[in-house]
Design a protein around this nucleic acid. Structure first.
Length: 261
DNA sequence: ATGTCGTGGACGCCACGA
């Protein structure tokens, strides 16, 4: 199974890039974030014409997530029990079962700044996500993949210059502790290969950040042990960050061997 | 290093989020 995750920063704006990328990368399952599109407007027919089924969770102009699969899509669930809002619940998580793998697409709140209420929301959301994932594992869903934009750089190696991030979100100890709490469930963060430089997944649009290597690894694929053991390869498709009208994130692609189905 | 994108409201730009 080829599993991928991509923050597309507006599915409407990125549809041409996505429709070009799908036949090229040919993922079996793709998790999307920042679709920024209501479910009623989701380009379902375009994806279905490529053989994919869709579980989308989108409300308004912000956020929005989806699971896209060409190997079956069962038991879709939008959001999760106890999910905190800001103040209303937002479209930040969707799960579905694809070829026996329980796949979650998540878009973790940004946090904005350490003194912003959105930062407290981010930490509360992550704690609630941990509880929801623990419940999935307790329910016997031991082939679990949690993919998406976590808005956390797990270590200083995951940002281009740690000094630039002093006092910022994405690198703070409470955020990293929340990330480690997810690993404490037994999930493993699959390290992607870098095709060039370090395996960053996000580069700001401004200041030529991509070409200067000023990136971060904040898009993660957290796999349960049964899936992590089957990883054959993982890489960041940085070509998708190039060219005309790219997202500011690149897709992460993970190949799982037959052991994972 | 905040220089770029995306959205929607209201219609040629602005506010906001990332």
């Amino acid at each position: 199974m080829r599993l991928a995750t991509w923050n597309v920063n507006s599915l409407a704006a990125r549809l041409p890039r996505l429709l070009a990328w799908l036949p090229e990368a040919h993922p079996d399952v793709l998790c999307l974030q920042e679709t920024k599109i209501p479910d009623a407007a989701f380009p379902r027919a375009e994806l279905e014409s490529l053989g994919y089924r869709v579980a989308s969770h989108g409300g308004g102009r912000w956020n929005g997530v989806a699971v896209v699969s060409r190997v079956g899509l069962e038991d879709p669930v939008l959001g999760f029990a106890g999910e905190p809002g800001f103040p209303q619940t937002e479209a930040r998580a969707v799960a579905a079962t694809c070829a026996g793998v329980r796949v979650w697409s998540v878009y973790v709140p940004n946090g904005r700044s350490l003194d912003n209420p959105h930062y407290a929301f981010k930490l509360a959301w992550l704690a609630s996500l941990r509880d929801a994932l623990a419940a999935e594992l307790r329910a016997g869903r031991d082939r679990l993949a949690v993919c998406g934009d976590f808005n956390i750089a797990p270590t200083d190696e995951d940002v281009w210059d740690p000094a630039e991030f002093a006092g910022s979100t994405h690198v703070s100890e409470p955020e990293r502790a929340a990330y480690r709490e997810l690993l404490a469930l037994g999930l493993r963060d699959v390290p992607p290969r870098a095709l060039k430089g370090r395996p960053f997944t996000y580069w700001d649009y401004r200041a030529g950040a991509f070409h200067k290597g000023m990136g971060m690894r904040i898009d993660l694929t957290l796999l349960s042990p049964a899936l992590a053991a089957a990883v054959r390869d993982a890489y960041v498709d940085r070509d998708a960050r190039k060219g005309t009208a790219p997202s500011d994130h690149a897709p992460v692609v993970v190949d799982l061997g037959p052991a994972a189905g």
